[in-house]
Amino acid sequence: MAEKILLVDDETDFLEVMSERMSARGMEVTTAESALDALEQVEKGGFDAIVLDLMMPGMDGLETLKAIKRKRPELQVILLSGHATLEKGIEAMKLGAMDFVEKPADIDALTEKIHKARAEKMVLVEKQMETKLKNIINARGW
């Protein structure tokens, strides 16, 4: 099954070319040009991973990352940045980003990270299901 990716960047040309390249690699890509658009898409759900630009007008990538993690903690976020400083990278990882990639990114390396993100998300979802089931069993005394 195709990986469902949300690609977030304020550069329209970047979104167009990346989504075409990612689609050619078998991914199902949705794009968002702003943090607000991205959060609306996240609300709808169904993504395996989010590729998110760090520097965007309005709400920046780190703020968006926090908001995404609040809404859907299981979602795997890969941050993209034109100026990947170590500090920002550490901050992003602390906030729950799965990875931090510097622009221009290598599409094959990014694809690998997306595969990994999907696998990690599946593990997290399975754990969530397991916890839910345990709670139901405990609550009903089965």
Partner: peptide, 15 residues
């Protein structure tokens, strides 16, 4: 930073 954004788009189009 802006320059890197432009280069990223050029690189992806070459790709």
């Amino acid at each position: 930073h802006e320059l890197k954004n432009a280069l990223a788009i050029i690189k992806e189009n070459a790709g």
